[in-house]
Design a protein around this nucleic acid. Structure first.
Length: 654
RNA sequence: GCCGACGUAGCUCAAUCGGCAGAGCAUCUGUCUUGUAAACAGAAGGUCAGGGGUUCGAUUCCCCUCGUCGGCUCCA
């Protein structure tokens, strides 16, 4: 055995003594470099190197490094929990985006006080600098050591078999246990089944915080027992963590449920029932602007406008396949004159009837039917959430019927159309998700046709140049879909538009057109919702703009604020001229002082305040105050009107 | 649907270890007439989410329902 090893260190050849660990080779301090990548595999710093190994550092501030810190923090949390709650059984504890969690089986759910105690104990453990020490074990040894951990035993049982999906507990190869050792005495403090890697010492965890707890089903299935999950966050520095916590605060300020009430846009009266919003006049204006704009764009893009009722005989949904496949998401039937009726959860079956209302020619295709259709879905009580998850909503729904030959081109132009409209609403950062079927029972139709439809979508998505993520099993029951995910102003992503291909419903409805050669053909059907739902889109826009809508969408575009009561008539005059230009303007003639009126308008996030006092009137001018607090005094009224109209017409943010 | 927390005036929040329910803002009425984020005064506003139970007495303790919030599962 040679006393030396040749390795590749960060790309350069090096010779090191036999027995050198990855950490020694990297001269890692366990602070900035917390793990290593050996031959492409993430490893502990204590990993001993072999001849020919290629070693690279994993820095704590990289995505991979953070995940390791978070995973290690999850271990520290589990240790603290088991010290404080000895009866707690371990579930799983992986790193996730921005943090980590660990699931526990405990008799009693954790309360906020428990979290404080756990966090306090964690800080002590971190301070002690316990060492993470890896130890390979055989399956039988693992079973013996973890005899008191039923969930871990289950994971060991899954290993190699069904556990194709790699978890953080059991990898593909040999099982390993990580021991947490006292830094001074080497005494065993805690251990967990885990494939690692981990930071070398609990001291390598610079910043963490427990966030919240909640129930979570074991292995993600509602058929399994429910465990208690604790979420935490961990970062490479206190500063980074504070930055993240600040982002959460910012998100809270933007919460559309809160802004919706503050800005008097909409509400959810308990009298109506959960998930059923009502839109107040100011919210109504935003909706109207959204809808008007969509109508205009659709008219330009060759859509035809249709209307369909909210309820229908149940049999229609037998034909469409909704009742066999989607009934759990529908409101229950009600009987009328001996016939069952249903409230519609989707508009497509009705649009199919419009297609079928008379004979169709290939010359009419693509036929684009669109409607702001009210649909109602039975969302389970625990999932209803503001405007983003409601039980009654309006879809800007379109169904496009094409020939198979036209399909690809139509999808392509459709995607372009969708992105162009979203951009006009101020969203610019997108990626696509391709939702496909899997082997489960919830999908109807011929897998070969699914394959064809999926490929058509994939090709268009790929050609768009946008990032494409796969979402296996996420399709609708009748066909695959592309969904457009948009990032908002603070980097959160929202699912908005969907484009779904449907080879099933046309058949189920017996839809036909006559082709050029006289034969009868079945059209392809494309479902498209651009906003997703008007409600959700309005909610997303509210959060994106933090309630400060661009002038074209702002419920009140201009507020006139007189310096003194005597200036009110002058502002009414200016307002009249603004109204004549289609601007939504109010004059605040209330008994408040000017400063108070400014404060009110500011809180209402009105884009333009127009002030007028003696000086302005003398010059036929007004003075602007913008949302930023910036002001522009003595602007001639004509110019002021032009500036406002221009901002509205160009749909810019101010 | 499941686990947990919560529900007091239009809003934000106090208080009552079981004994007359309180503030600020908003609203209304007056006074004041003001140059870029809150003038002053007064009035009005509550079946303490709803229902049931325990108790001499329940906003307070217990149960149920509804709703909200945070998770899980599911989704536009």
């Amino acid at each position: 055995m040679s006393a030396e090893l040749r390795i590749t260190l960060a790309g350069a050849e090096r010779v090191v003594a036999a027995g050198t660990t990855a950490g020694q080779a990297l001269e890692a301090d366990g602070r900035t470099v917390i793990a290593a990548r050996v031959n492409g595999e993430p490893r502990d710093l204590a990993h001993p190197l072999a001849e020919g190994d290629a070693v690279e550092p994993i820095e704590i501030s990289s995505d991979e490094g953070r995940a390791i810190v978070r995973h290690s923090t999850a271990h520290v949390m589990a240790q603290a929990v088991q010290e404080l709650f000895p009866e707690a059984k371990l579930g799983i504890g992986p790193p996730v985006e921005n943090g980590f969690y660990y699931d526990f089986d405990v008799a009693q759910a954790f309360n906020p006080d428990d979290l404080k105690r756990i966090e306090k104990r964690m800080r002590e453990i971190v301070k002690q600098g316990q060492l993470f020490s890896r130890r390979p074990v055989s399956d039988d040894e693992a079973r013996a050591e973890l005899a008191a951990e039923p969930y871990k035993l289950e994971l060991i049982g899954l290993k190699g078999g069904a556990a194709e999906e790699e978890s953080v507990e059991v990898g593909a190869g040999q099982l390993t246990i990580y021991d947490n050792l006292d830094a001074k005495t080497g005494e065993l403090c805690w251990k967990d089944l885990c494939r690692g890697p981990h930071v070398p010492s609990t001291r390598s965890i610079p910043a963490f915080k427990l966030m919240r707890s909640g129930g979570a089903y074991w292995r993600g299935s509602e058929k399994n027992p429910q465990l208690q999950r604790i979420y935490g966050t961990a970062w490479e520095s206190r500063d980074k963590q504070d930055e993240y916590l600040k982002l959460l605060e910012e998100a809270e300020k933007r919460d559309h449920r809160k802004l919706g009430a503050e800005l008097d846009l909409f509400s959810f009266p308990p009298e109506l029932g959960s998930g059923l919003p009502i839109f107040h006049p100011k919210g109504g204006i935003i909706r109207k602007e959204m809808e008007d704009y969509m109508r205009r764009r659709q008219a330009e893009a060759g859509y035809e406008f249709v209307n369909t009722p909210h309820i229908t005989k149940s049999s229609l949904f037998e034909t469409s396949g909704h009742l066999p496949w989607y009934a759990d998401d529908m409101f229950p039937a009600f009987e009328l004159e001996g016939v069952d009726y249903r409230v519609k959860p989707m508009n497509c079956p009705m649009h199919n009837l419009i297609f079928r209302a008379r004979g169709r020619s290939y010359r009419e295709l693509p036929l684009r039917l669109c409607e702001f259709g009210s649909v109602y879905r039975y969302e389970k009580s625990g999932v209803v959430h503001g405007l983003t998850r409601v039980r009654g909503m309006t879809q800007d729904d379109a169904h496009i019927y094409t020939t198979r030959e036209q399909m690809a081109d139509e999808i392509k132009s459709l995607l372009r159309f969708v992105l162009s409209v979203l951009r006009d609403f101020g969203l610019s950062d997108f990626y696509l998700e391709l939702s496909t079927r899997d082997d489960s029972e919830k999908f109807i139709g011929d897998p070969a046709e699914w394959e064809e439809a999926t490929e058509a979508l994939r090709q268009v998505a790929t050609e768009s140049g946008l990032t494409l993520k796969d979402d296996p099993g996420g399709a609708a029951f009748y066909g695959p879909k592309i969904s457009v995910q948009a990032k908002d102003a603070i980097g959160r992503t929202w699912q908005l538009s969907t484009i779904q291909l449907d080879l099933n419903q046309p058949k189920r409805f017996g839809l036909e057109y006559q082709a050029a050669d006289g034969s009868r053909q079945t059209p392809v059907m494309i479902h498209r919702a651009l906003f997703g739902s008007v409600e959700r889109f309005l909610g997303v826009l509210t959060e994106h703009y933090a309630g400060a809508f661009p002038p074209w969408l702002a419920p009140v575009q201009v507020v006139g604020i007189p310096i003194a009561e005597a200036h009110v008539p002058y502002l009414h005059d200016v307002a009249k001229r603004l109204r004549a230009s289609g601007i939504r303007v109010e004059v605040d003639a209330a008994d408040d002082r000017m400063q108070k009126k400014i404060r009110n308008a500011q809180k209402a996030k009105v884009p333009f305040m127009l002030l007028a006092g003696d000086d302005d009137i003398a010059n036929g001018a007004v003075s602007f105050r913008y949302r930023s607090g910036e002001q522009k005094n003595g602007v001639p009224v004509d110019e002021a009107i032009a500036e406002i109209v221009n901002a509205v017409e160009r749909r810019v943010q101010v």
